[in-house]
Write a protein that binds this DNA or RNA. Structure first.
Lengths: 335, 335
DNA sequence: CCACCTATTGACAACGCTGAACTAGGCGCT
DNA sequence: AGCGCCTAGTTCAGCGTTGTCAATAGGTGG
């Protein structure tokens, strides 16, 4: 059965198609009698607006691309879920783009694959705002996380304060040799906001961090990477009394490696993660972590995007969101 | 800057818009000289087809809705990721619908919110195929998991054989009183394929399952529900030497509850999950589980949907996929 | 050299919708 | 009474693309 069009409804209600359109758009200058008649007709023929037709006129799709590096990581799955629901609350549908790899991420954010959306919210992993700019931005793009770029709207999560807080917590509970399980490329010296937080906390406590305590995960965010990284670190013979991990997934692998090696957590070594995923609550021992304010982040990102869709065309803005420490068993003071 | 249209390209290449269209669609009867000229022009003006215009003519969107109950559960996150990527391989974009609750799921699958897609792949949780039928299906819908309906294409995952296998495994390793952590509504007697598998295994071993060993999780798939369910079961004073859980999330909560209660796993009680999520590999002890063949499931679902989009209009088909046992530490024989 | 055929290209309409401009009728005001 | 004004509703065009069919050019055979 052919799908009903405006004309079908119009014929049934005995008015013009335009009047039906006006009713559906909630325009004024329609008598309530007509309005009612149209609404009945709409229901009777089971009419639903054809987005293609509307989109052709308006030049809009009502759709937003949400770009995440993957979904297997609970952090991104949760973020994606929140974003989709928040956008849906604003009457926007979303299309999720899984950007495995650098080029895919760039394309998804501004390339060929993104012609059919009004705007983009990208949770960058591989790329920086600069990449975006180099590509030329043809529609609103809001960056959620990562290093800010002056030109793009960006939500800066509390990476620095969060990582500083967790490092301070470790130092305050007596740890002095804090290993860092780093999720950047192997061999590249740590950098970025989280690392800066790590350093700041050490400085505040007058402790000099030992660069030999940096362990690299081969694949930045897999639990298995944390495991490997920790096994590797242990093999170097380094001594440490705490491990601060760049995210929960790595921390969970670290916990396992320590347990296999007979190291007691938290008695011998404290372990902390970052992201505060649900999973951390149920590890053995439960995992201390940093909880970024995902709700805040999502709200800010959606708000800025909606702003842009509404026509705002100013300079790139920056919203900084918070993070708070969630202390569980894995970082209790050494016994 | 206004986005380039076919006419812009046409003007630049010195041909008609239709010829440009023909080139882009790969139609025959275009001389290679013209073809080349057009392609150059396309690149020069940075043309990209406007899906609204195309959609208006073709009546298609090239988009598929993927409906999942949530993303916080790793099982669905993984499934969604695979589906999105598989669809993308077929040149289809996808829009992910999070269907919190029964009505939302129905609407997302066939309702108002789904007018802008060519087809739907739904991972049902709250609803049955019957609900879909009652609503009237206006576009291809493939059901992925859940109880099959004769009219709808459906991928039936290896729930029965999987749950039977894991139950047999427990029985074969000497367990006799196998508690069941059930994810259905509180108080409703267990049913469905997994439960049938549980019963079948018992029958094969000549063991009579004790109905007092069914524990209910208040929220079917949260780790916390598994925890609560197990605490509740322990409070009844029931004795058991194994716990078979309907999914990994519940099993992880169960592990925690047992550990808090001083019960040793697997020495005193074996625990098994279902889904074989990554997380289970890193629990303490690592979690035995049933691995449904997600790859197979996704392939089958996408294949059937593409079939339907291609015009196939036969009766509902059913593809049964397998499942295999993944034995880890949590179900080692009692010491 | 002409008629005819084929290969290539173009003109036009249509898809379903909405903005702009317009009409008809009723109202109040002078 | 006559004027303009407001309201409710209509008509028309056009958004960007593709299908249909006509037209044109170029080559071929008689």
């Amino acid at each position: 059965m052919r799908r009903a069009t405006l004309d079908d409804v119009a014929a049934r209600a005995g008015v013009s198609a335009k009047t039906v359109s006006n009713v559906l758009l909630g325009r004024p200058n329609v008598s309530s009698a007509t309005r009612e008649r149209v609404q009945t007709a709409v229901a009777e023929v089971g009419y639903a607006v054809n987005p293609a037709g509307r989109g052709l006129v308006s030049g809009r799709t009502g759709r937003v691309a949400v770009v995440v590096p993957n979904l297997y990581q609970p952090y991104f799955a949760e973020l994606a879920e929140r974003l989709i629901l928040a956008l849906s609350d604003r009457g926007l549908t979303s299309t999720l783009r899984i950007a495995h790899g650098r080029a895919a991420e760039r394309d998804a954010a501004l390339g060929v694959t993104t012609r059919d959306v009004d705007g983009v919210i990208v949770c960058p992993h591989h790329f920086t705002g600069e990449m975006l700019l180099a590509g030329g931005v043809s529609r609103p793009v809001v960056q959620l996380g990562g290093a800010p770029t002056p030109v793009l709207d960006c939500v800066v999560m509390g990476e620095h304060i969060g990582f500083e807080a967790v490092t301070r917590h470790l130092l305050a509970t007596g740890r002095r040799r804090i290993a860092l399980v780093w999720n950047g490329p192997e061999g590249v010296h740590p950098q970025g906001a989280r690392y800066a937080g790590y350093l700041a906390a050490h400085e505040a406590f007058g402790v000099h961090p030992d660069e030999a305590l940096v362990a690299f995960g081969s694949d930045w965010d897999r639990r298995a990477s944390g495991y490997e990284a920790m096994v590797g670190l242990q093999r170097t013979g380094a001594t440490f009394d705490a491990v601060a991990c760049m995210n929960d997934a790595l921390a969970i692998g670290v916990l396992r490696a320590l347990r296999s090696g007979g190291v007691r957590v938290p008695d011998d070594v404290a372990v902390t993660g970052f992201d505060d995923t649900d999973e951390g609550e149920f590890t053995t021992p439960s995992l201390s972590s940093v909880s970024p304010e995902q709700g805040e982040m999502v709200d800010a990102a959606v708000r800025m995007l909606v702003d842009r869709l509404g026509g705002y065309d100013g300079a790139g803005r920056e919203v900084r969101t918070g993070a708070h420490l969630v202390i569980r068993d894995s970082s209790a003071p050494a016994s």
